[in-house]
């Protein structure tokens, strides 16, 4: 039942049907705003400092095309770039475009990592795109995106 509850937060008005007392639910829904709430564009602006990121083949993003359970979606990111002392991948960011808080993880790497790689599991509130942004050694940002279909009947 946990994932139902989780989805309700994101589903907004369509959660009305699932709640037993519909009269209080609208007011309650308004309260359920995350203090960390941030949309995708703003998050990307903060990460890149307004420069924006280009699509690139260098970033390999591995996510399932169809996720049966939106609460656990495995994400793997690796970047084809050298990890030398003065020229290394500085950071990897994982973003989900339609989550209430688009930011998932900001990873700051060092040359001691040997290879730019990061893997985790994230929650997705619905069908949306997952974006991986990486900062290369010369200060430019590259990204890769893939859409994930979340197949939970959260909205009836």
């Amino acid at each position: 039942m946990e994932r139902r509850g989780f989805l309700k937060g994101f589903a907004g008005a369509c959660a009305l049907t699932a709640i037993a007392v519909p009269t209080i639910s609208l007011a309650e829904q308004k309260k359920l705003k995350s203090p960390n709430e941030m949309d995708f564009k703003k998050a990307l602006d903060i990460i890149t400092g307004g420069k924006g990121a280009k699509d690139s083949q260098k970033v390999n993003l591995i996510v399932p095309e169809i996720a049966e359970n939106g609460a656990v979606v495995p994400v793997k990111v690796s970047v084809d770039a050298p990890m030398e002392k003065d020229n290394y991948v500085k950071s990897i960011h994982v973003l989900a475009t339609k989550n209430a808080n688009a930011r998932c993880a900001d990873v700051f790497l060092t040359p001691y990592n040997g290879k730019a790689y990061f893997a985790t599991r994230i929650k997705l509130g619905g069908t949306q795109e997952v974006v991986a942004v990486a900062e290369l050694g010369d200060g430019t940002f590259v990204k890769a995106h893939k859409s994930v279909k979340v197949t939970i009947g959260g909205c009836g």
Partner: peptide, 13 residues
């Protein structure tokens, strides 16, 4: 320190 992460609530349980 080899890696530092800032993570948010959208990481799974």
């Amino acid at each position: 320190l080899i890696t530092k992460m800032i993570v948010w609530e959208s990481i799974s349980t």
